[in-house]
Nucleic acid binder design. Structure first.
Lengths: 309, 309
DNA sequence: TGCTTATCTCGGAATTTGTGATGTTATTGT
DNA sequence: ACAATAACATCACAAATTCCGAGATAAGCA
């Protein structure tokens, strides 16, 4: 590796100018550095490449021209490598790989994309639904560029922005007696049969909500998908506590559900966006910004239900 | 130029091994050097390229793999540049450019080439007849790889091997009265009308040969090509003094000439081979060797005439 | 002959690269 | 749960390299 790119650059610009001094001026270095770069190239190949004529500058011989051509080619490749690398960071092209543990992500992600991706763009999205741990592992392993996940239970090494804190709300069938109240209490909920969203963090979180209550709601069903929970509720199998809300009250089963805030003061779940905050690719940066803006404006009033509103 | 080839090499071998330690072992450097090389590459693009997991080694993310691929490509190009450069020096391919001030070069150069070039080879010969100064200028300017020239009057900066020292000989028509002598003397020559080879060094050299004689040969003609001199001699216009001898006594005019050594002790002309002796291309080196061997063996007995033989 | 324009040389300064020791973190086996 | 092990991270220092600047040298030019 004695022959460095720097030496090649000095060498080629010197040949280009036919003068060590001029090359040095253009490169903003001392002439002796250029001279020694030429020496280095010649030493590398153990060939005389340049005829140095005092007071007349330098001139390549045939082999020198040949080597210079090859070096310039390599330098071109190098420059385009740098440019491609910069593109990788700066451009809006490429693949954006997102892992999410956010059951209602379909309710907002399309709108986020709309905000920062042109209608026709060179971006390929890779969306992967997973659980909180998989998401964090994937981010740390470089599988995902960004993850949407629940900040409760975040690993120390993950960098993230908080998008929204979502307090729990109560979900009931449209025929439920509590449907006419503006808010419900945990005490009221505790008497209802409950459909529990049985996913990593959620299950213990919902469990914890009852810890200050004298009685706990009986569990009518466990289901590990949000839509199954909603549909079971709509079908009258029980009620549920969830945190984030799709934009429709209709469910897969055909019947609607009704959501009401809970008046008790309860810990919310935090939806967070994890990504490389120190040096993100441009597209990741833009995605993060779009997420933040989405939840700073339209988001909160649509996907969460708060009793303080 | 912050991103050096070395950094790229360390980076790519680290990714290849999935381990900084193993890469360091292979590269025979400290692990910290590899680690910092990775840092350099990441800093250059301001991107996270590698996930470093303690106790488990390293793993590239998508961008890292991308960059690594590009870097490996550049390294490949670099390696082939080095190889091509080495070929330039070592291989028998390419163009061999020879300038010569040696009027009878056609008498021996073909045999020299036979000795070191395979019947079918990738070598292109560029042979250029010129005078002594042009030859030396061309060598210094890199126009020629090697020159055959007369060492008398050599520039100080030219490196050369002496191929043969050629004493002057006497050339006469086949009908000449002196043809039956084994040798002739300068005193005898001084009475003959002379055909003088009128070329840069030769003219003054032949002039000088008479300086110790009481009388000088009358000049019947000046001619600036050897074959014209020989043909004039064959046609009976006079005699000549030359130094090197073709392998035929026939001349273009159709008649033969007869050569005889001169018994006086006279300064010879030195045929020399000038080239880059410090770091020649392989093919130039080989050519030089072939020239030396040619004149060390078959050459002296064929192209020169000595009265000492 | 003297002036100008170049390259060459060389010592020392600045920068970069590499080392080795030490610390931190994660995995693995008991 | 704990110890042993395997990696990577960091840091101060050493080594090597690069670069500068000043003088020396050589060639062209008037």
């Amino acid at each position: 590796m004695a022959l460095t790119l720097k030496a090649m650059e000095y060498f080629t610009t010197a040949l280009h100018h036919g003068s060590i001094v001029k090359a040095a001026a253009e490169l903003n270095i001392a002439a002796s550095a250029v001279s020694s770069a030429i020496d280095q190239v010649e030493a590398e190949f153990d060939l005389t490449l340049v005829i140095r004529q005092r007071a007349r500058g330098i001139q390549p011989n045939a082999a020198g021209r040949d080597v210079a051509r090859k070096c310039e080619h390599l330098l071109d490749e190098y420059r385009s490598l740098l440019i491609e690398g910069a593109e990788l960071k700066k451009s809006h092209k490429g693949t954006l790989r997102i892992g999410y543990y956010a059951p209602i992500a379909p309710a907002f992600l399309p709108q986020v994309f709309e905000a920062f991706l042109p209608n026709t763009s060179d971006v390929t999205l890779e969306l992967e639904e997973c659980n909180n741990d998989e998401a964090q592992d994937g981010l740390l392993a470089g599988t995902y560029d960004a993850i949407l996940f629940v900040a409760e239970g975040v690993r120390p090494s993950i960098e993230y922005d908080t998008l929204v804190t979502a307090p729990p709300y109560f979900l009931m069938p449209s025929s439920h007696p509590l449907k006419d109240q503006r808010t419900v209490t945990m005490a009221q909920i505790a008497t209802e049969p409950l459909i529990v969203l049985n996913r990593p963090i959620a299950a213990s979180y919902y469990e914890g909500l009852f810890q200050s209550e004298t009685r706990k709601a009986p569990v009518a069903a466990y289901a590990n998908s949000t839509e199954m929970v909603r549909s079971l509720v709509a079908a009258g199998r029980g009620c549920a506590i969830l945190n984030m809300l799709p934009l429709t009250s209709e469910t897969y089963v055909g019947a609607p559900v009704i959501a009401r805030p809970i008046s008790d003061s309860l810990p919310p779940l935090t939806l967070a966006l994890g990504y490389d905050r120190m040096r993100p690719r441009r597209i990741v940066q833009d995605f993060a910004k779009a997420c933040q803006e989405h939840f700073a404006t339209v988001g909160p009033t649509r996907c969460i239900i708060s009793h303080e509103e």
